[in-house]
Design a protein around this nucleic acid. Structure first.
Lengths: 271, 271
DNA sequence: CAAATAGTGTCTCTAAGACAATATCAC
DNA sequence: GTGATATTGTCTTAGAGACACTATTTG
């Protein structure tokens, strides 16, 4: 009789066809804008990391950072590695979004993509030195439902504007899936991945799951509120936000200074 | 200059190492039990489909149904195909649970598993004729936190009882991950996959996402309530359940008959 | 003081949970 | 009528949203 040892020593996985496996990451950051007088609040913009492809296919098109899974690493490690290679920053959070495996989604062949959303704080990007590679840039994101029911995804960096149009396919198990009507010049099916990731990010921002990762260790409640508002594209009343967030944060003894108005207490994430 | 055509014609994905890709499915069904007098309500049990492995590795151990992704199909199609091969039933719903890609999780080599939870109605299993394969069986499931904080997963079918013990690792983005302390005789890391899938199922049952799929087209509100209670291992007051579920169902003009008590109106899922 | 943001108190409304009461069938 | 489940009504309470008000800083 054949033992498990015997079996494994003769077993050849290579006898079966295998796909290539990638991780693609929608890395989000919130960029604070300077405007008005020094006393006035600066606005915030949600931005997304895109990489200009240097080789075929989709050469010179903008794409999500990503790459092939390598032996010995998990798909999450692969995703983190790819973001770090582009930004020099290790993201604090990594949210699985979906797996895209439709045949034909990649002209190179049989490639299935594991999509993640990750969050990076502006502080850590600045510390890392930023744009050492001009082919990786942070694009301002806007993503909204239009009157006719379809969604417009706009990505903007300097003179470059990418407009993708998507339709909502279905929402099950808390996840919405989209279909691309116009890719807006984005590579592969990345418009779809971005839309899915952004929807997941928004949904998690509702229960404060992802919002802390956009900020440094200590932060003001107003800053935290603006993060949530920026991601979800809503406004909430400060009093109500403070009441709801109270369970998730811990007071520190520090305050902001020199802002031309009442100083704000700094908080820290609970746990 | 090289065109995209040129590039693709010389590009060889095969030059890079690739993993094997599988889908593993936790297929759930709710089995109604007969007990007491004919007038009395029958209880319900949540059950899970397991397959006895016929070959190495883990020969003769129980495992989740699953198999390798084949060219030309999506990972979801692969999952549905595998369930159908075992049960002759096409599941109504398929929920992505997680991707397991730790090196070493499968003794055969580099294999990453895409875990799904699927739901099958008892009615459709009975129609399909049931046990044509004695190596595929529905096990009663219980899964609960113990006093010491770890979780006990019990799977039972006839004389066979599998007891796995897991610890909770982390909960982020609404998903809990587990670590296996004792596999209870389950193959591979399937105890972990089952725990993760069951947690996801419970979480979705809370917002009525998955509960309809356990029942036929038309159903009584009490039956629907019992499904939710069985999955989540809770009890709720009928009055409150009815108020919350009202938005998700539509009345029909039909009623149950001959039950020895007041007939119940049949409902249909809205949408 | 003016301008700006920080922070608190409280009213209202809705939704969830608890519980009591009524309805209808087979026997 | 009895025993069982079906179905409705309503009281209480917790939480979300709206809004008014007070506090503290720099110039």
């Amino acid at each position: 009789m054949q033992t498990e040892q015997d079996f494994l020593s003769t077993y050849r996985l290579e006898d079966f066809e295998r796909p290539s496996v990638t991780a693609d990451i929608a890395a989000f950051m919130i960029r604070s804008e300077v405007r008005g007088s020094y006393r006035q609040d600066s606005g915030n913009k949600l931005s997304l990391l895109l990489v200009k492809r240097g080789c075929h296919p989709f050469k010179d098109h903008w794409a999500l950072p990503g790459g092939f899974l390598q032996p010995g690493e998990t798909i999450e490690e692969c995703a983190l590695r790819e973001v770090q290679e582009e930004t020099n920053v290790l993201p604090v959070s990594l949210m699985p979004v979906a797996v895209f495996s439709e045949p034909g989604r990649d002209p190179r062949g049989w490639i299935i993509s594991h999509a993640f959303a990750s969050v990076i704080s502006e502080e850590s990007v600045k510390q890392a030195g930023g744009d050492d590679a001009a082919d990786a840039q942070w694009f301002d994101v806007s993503f909204d439902r239009r009157e006719n029911g379809s969604y417009l995804l706009t990505l903007q960096y300097g003179d470059i504007t990418l407009n993708a149009i998507l339709t909502e396919e279905e929402t099950r198990f808390g996840k919405t899936s989209f279909r691309i009507k116009e890719s807006g010049g984005l590579a592969f099916d990345h418009a779809r991945i971005i839309a899915t990731a952004l929807t997941a990010l928004r949904s998690d921002a509702k229960n404060f799951e992802t919002i802390f990762d956009f900020l440094p260790e200590t932060f003001t409640l107003t800053a935290l509120q603006k993060v949530q508002e920026t991601i979800m594209n809503i406004t909430v009343l400060p009093a109500n936000f403070r009441r709801k967030i109270a369970d998730y944060v811990v007071e520190t003894d520090e305050y902001t200074q020199g802002a031309g108005h009442r100083p704000a207490r700094l908080y820290r994430r609970k746990n």
